[in-house]
């Protein structure tokens, strides 16, 4: 464990010194995500010009949900995204070789190597946005609800990574492109809307097959007095289950990688 903490401190050090090399790029990227935030909030502002409730949630509630979504996005961008982006490239080029030789977890290395400082700035902005919506809300929250809200958001960005890895693993067999990852980035948009609007089979799919509504929608529910155990059980259950699924597929993929190459 201390070994991994030490390794991560090195990752942090390298990423920090690298990220400030390109100052324009750095500021542009922060600005880019800010525009993303504004567009997301404005989208729901327009929607609420035509309705008073969305899937049973008021505008206040939906705004808190949006801020949760922004945090999940910023978290995964800060910690995982840049590293995980290279995985399909490494698989295709056969560059996993050295990762297989090191006495350290390959997924740890691949997913956490790049810390994006620019996204970390966005993460702070997103957290501030959420605090703003929480404090201006007319709903009363208990302190533990807020704590659980943020914890489940962390859990949500972890599930985001898991689903992403799962959609990358087909690359091990197809040997081309990014597998289903591009589909993942499209389907991820289901997470951008409150889960209460989805009905029927789609709802079950989004709960258990591609659990996008566990990213930010369910964590938001914890604030609105819903059954605590149900929400907690579901979110944690999904992250445990998908940890196993992702690990299993990754292992199978590595096995294929090592039997297919020469």
């Amino acid at each position: 464990m201390t070994k991994y903490l030490k390794l991560y401190s090195h990752f942090l050090k390298f990423s920090l010194s690298n990220s400030l090399q390109f100052r324009f790029d750095f500021t542009f990227r922060i600005l880019m995500d800010c525009i993303f935030y504004v567009v997301n909030i404005m989208f729901f502002k327009v929607i609420f010009a035509h309705t008073s409730l969305l899937g049973g949630w008021t505008e206040e509630q939906v705004m808190i949900f949006v801020s949760a979504h922004l945090i999940v996005d910023a978290l995964q961008m800060t910690f995982f995204s840049n590293g995980a982006w290279m995985i399909p490239v490494y698989i295709n080029k056969g560059d996993l070789d050295y990762y297989l030789l090191r006495p350290v977890s390959d997924l740890f290395f691949l997913c956490l190597r790049e810390f994006a400082l620019n996204s970390f700035v966005n993460l702070i902005i997103a957290v501030v946005i959420s605090i703003y919506f929480l404090t201006t809300s007319t709903i009363d929250f208990e302190w533990w609800q807020i704590l659980l809200f943020y914890l489940l958001i962390l859990n949500g960005s972890y599930i985001h990574l898991l689903i992403r890895i799962i959609t990358i693993t087909p690359v091990f067999w197809t040997h081309s492109g990014r597998g289903l990852e591009m589909a993942f980035w499209t389907l991820e948009r289901f997470a951008e809307r409150p889960d209460t609007i989805y009905k029927g089979w789609l709802r079950y799919s989004l709960m258990f097959i591609l659990p996008f509504i566990a990213l930010c929608s369910f964590p938001t529910r914890i604030l609105f007095g819903e059954s605590l155990l149900e929400v907690l059980g579901y979110c944690i259950g999904i992250s445990v289950l998908f940890t196993f699924v992702a690990r299993f597929l990754w292992k199978a993929g590595l096995k294929s990688y090592s039997s297919a190459s020469s």
Binding site: D97, L100, L101, K255, S258, S259, S261, S262
Partner: peptide
């Protein structure tokens, strides 16, 4: 290279 990669554990032997 195949032999080297098998000996180092990157490749599964058949």
């Amino acid at each position: 290279t195949t032999l080297v990669k098998i000996l180092s554990g990157i490749i599964h032997p058949t």
